[in-house]
Design a protein around this nucleic acid. Structure first.
Lengths: 129, 129
DNA sequence: TCACTGGATGCAACAGTGTTGCATCTGTGT
DNA sequence: ACACAGATGCAACACTGTTGCATCCAGTGA
């Protein structure tokens, strides 16, 4: 963020570290709760503002259909689809050529002008299954 | 709903008719607003409770990533994927064998036990494009 | 090292969304 | 027409996210 003339404050650093460290995507309230629990003095509002800023910078992804965010692992990749464990909340990104192709077919066959899509798998990870 | 010993009250009937009649999925607040506008005396809470009940009965689908609901057109079909117009909100369901197949491949290749997925296309419909 | 400064922060207040408890009403079967 | 289960409306509440504003602080240049 230094590139953007944004100072790296103590709360912001703690937030970033927490998101990076967390094995599963966390939402604003969870981020806030965890930080407070860890003794970091940070306001609810700052969590929201930082998360929004990081999303805008493309450093975070939002888990579809929820407010949880996860670090953007593969920034170069155009489509970041993820599979999320419904038990523990951990997430992993995946990429499927066949899937991209099938989506492209649908895109071409519909009379809509397709601008994007939401795709996310739900299931149980290795430890939770 | 008669099968479930649920009386068909005036507000409930109006809500059902509105959902059936609407060309685009509506959320609770829109449903409430439209009904009031049409002169139906119904409370916000009743809208929420009725929508919840109808979703549970499988008579409605929720638009992914939003609170809007649409009538369940093809109840027999396992996967109801929809494409939603981001301009006017209208939605249409679609089905793609290739897509199902690709999703099946991903399902098999991951180490997660996949239980379901979220998939919805976003775009512009014929009238809005 | 120190003052400066723009962005970040915390706090308070607010708005929107969805939920719960409860007294009352109403549709339905008898 | 009656009785009852379920639905309704209302009030109050909880949660989530936003905005305004005074203050603070990390980073910069002297």
């Amino acid at each position: 963020m230094r590139r953007d003339r944004r100072p790296i404050t103590r709360p912001r650093r703690a937030l970033l570290e927490l998101i990076e460290r967390s094995p599963k995507p966390l939402g604003p309230r969870e981020l806030h709760r965890e930080l407070r629990r860890a003794g970091v003095r940070i306001d609810r509002v700052s969590v929201y503002r930082n998360v929004a800023a990081l999303l805008e910078l493309g450093l975070l992804h939002r888990v579809l259909g929820s407010t949880a965010v996860r670090p953007c692992v593969e920034r170069a990749q155009k489509c970041h689809h993820a599979i999320v464990c419904t038990a523990c909340g951990s997430a992993r990104e995946f990429h499927s050529v066949a899937l991209e192709k099938a989506l492209g077919d649908v895109r071409r066959s519909t009379r809509y002008r397709v601008l994007g899509h939401l795709l996310e798998l739900r299931g149980l990870c290795e430890s939770c299954r």
